[in-house]
């Protein structure tokens, strides 16, 4: 369970999120316009940026957790893989998910290697294990990121726009994996992709952001039951775009 209390956060000196209090008991999809602070929220939870207020995970204050403990609790999957080292192989990359579980200064154990092998087989990318990351397609890179998060074995997995760079076929593969993972992990999904969101079928938090020259207002609406959110009328009201039967089609 994730709980935010009076949470505020800045990005580039601008207040992006202000006084948000929210309890996330189960899987959650966060939707909202560009610049509404979706990724900022996720990054704050992961400890990548500083914030005001309090965040509790499983009733523990995350500011009091060490970085290692935090890594064991949450993993974050970015939209796009950015790797400076152009020689790292898929296998080595996925093995890095075991870093928080590894004894300091020692090599990865046999168990770490086994978990990595199982994860690669589970995601059906074992045949790519000796390929360098830079030689993989965007879809395969997204799978590599998911594999690394899975070997990390954290309770919570945050997906930050997992299908942003993918074609429909790869989006489908990723969507099916995300849905499948709901059984074992608490999934937080941040996306613009309404097909993905409705297919994954989580409760929805919608971050609204209206800006005029006088003031910027932000608020958050929460939809416990996803069917109430994925209605053409609701979507039209929130996005200001006409929708005609948003049909999920990944099955």
């Amino acid at each position: 369970m994730i709980e935010l209390k009076d949470f505020s956060c800045k990005f580039d000196e601008k207040i992006v999120l202000q006084d948000i209090s929210l309890k996330i008991k189960n899987h959650l999809t966060i939707l909202g316009a560009n610049g509404s602070g979706k990724s900022t929220l996720a990054k704050a939870v992961c400890g990548l940026i500083t914030f005001n207020g309090k965040i509790f995970i499983e009733s523990k204050n995350i500011s009091e957790l060490s970085l290692i403990e935090r890594a064991k609790t949450i993993s974050y999957i970015p939209a796009k893989l950015a790797v400076y080292d152009s020689f790292i192989t898929l296998y080595e990359f996925v093995l890095l998910g075991r870093f928080p579980h590894k004894k300091s200064f020692l090599d990865y154990s046999k168990r770490d290697e086994n978990i990595t092998k199982q994860t690669l087989e589970f995601l059906k990318i074992n045949h790519l294990k000796n390929h360098t990351l830079s030689s993989l397609s965007s879809g395969e890179q997204q799978l590599a990121l998911i594999a690394q998060a899975l070997t990390q074995q954290s309770k919570i997995i945050i997906f930050d726009e997992p299908t942003a760079n993918l074609d429909p076929h790869n989006s489908k593969i990723i969507a099916q994996h995300i849905k499948g993972l709901k059984e074992y992990h608490q999934i937080i999904l941040i996306t613009h992709d309404l097909h993905l969101a409705s297919y994954v079928d989580n409760s929805v938090a919608f971050l609204k952001y209206t800006s005029s020259f006088r003031a910027t207002t932000r608020n958050l609406s929460y939809y416990e039951d996803p069917t109430k959110f994925f209605k053409d009328s609701t979507l039209q009201k929130l996005y200001g775009v006409k929708f005609n039967n948003l049909v999920p089609n990944y099955d």
Partner: peptide, 23 residues
């Protein structure tokens, strides 16, 4: 040498090293 795995993560990105628990 003793920080070789930290360096391996840092050579991916600062962000990914932080996410794996490295100061």
């Amino acid at each position: 040498y003793i920080y070789r795995f930290e360096l391996q993560l840092l050579s991916i990105s600062d962000e990914s090293a932080t996410l794996k628990g490295i100061n």
